[in-house]
C-alpha cells in the first residue's frame, strides 16, 4: 500500500510491480505463506487450510466495537 504524501511514488510503484510477480510468490510460499500466484507452499504442501468464511470488511468495521466488548469482559494487559 502506497501512503498519501510520499515523495517517492515511482519507487513505491516499482515495488508494487515487483511484489506482483511469480518470483515473489515463490519466495513467500517457501516461507509458508499462501500467495497471490500459485507456488509450492512449504508449510501446507498442496492441501491448503480449511478457512472459516469471513467478511473481511466487517472484520475491519467491527474492530473498535469488539475491542470495547473485550475491554469490558476480558483482561486488557499484554506482554
Amino acid at each position: 500500500m502506497i501512503l498519501k504524501g510520499t515523495k517517492k511514488l515511482d519507487a513505491c510503484k516499482k515495488i508494487i510491480d515487483l511484489l506482483g510477480g511469480q518470483e515473489f510468490s515463490d519466495l513467500m510460499a517457501a516461507i509458508g505463506y499462501v500467495t497471490p500466484r500459485p507456488a509450492p507452499n512449504a508449510l501446507y504442501g498442496k492441501t491448503l487450510p480449511k478457512y472459516i468464511k469471513l467478511d473481511l470488511g466487517k472484520a475491519s468495521d467491527d474492530k473498535a466495537k469488539n475491542n470495547d466488548i473485550w475491554k469490558q469482559k476480558l483482561r486488557t494487559d499484554f506482554k
Binding site: M1, I2, L3, K4, C12, L18, G20, L56, A59, S60
Partner: peptide, 28 residues
C-alpha cells in the same frame, strides 16, 4: 512511504479513509 505487510482490516480502513495512493499495477 509504504506499508508492506499489514492486516486486511488496515487495507480496508486505508481505502475508506483515503490514506492510500491508488495505483493499478499491470504486474498484478
Amino acid at each position: 512511504d509504504m506499508v508492506i505487510g499489514c492486516g486486511s482490516s488496515t487495507g480496508f480502513l486505508a481505502k475508506k479513509s483515503g490514506w492510500a495512493v491508488p495505483y493499478v499495477s499491470p504486474a498484478w
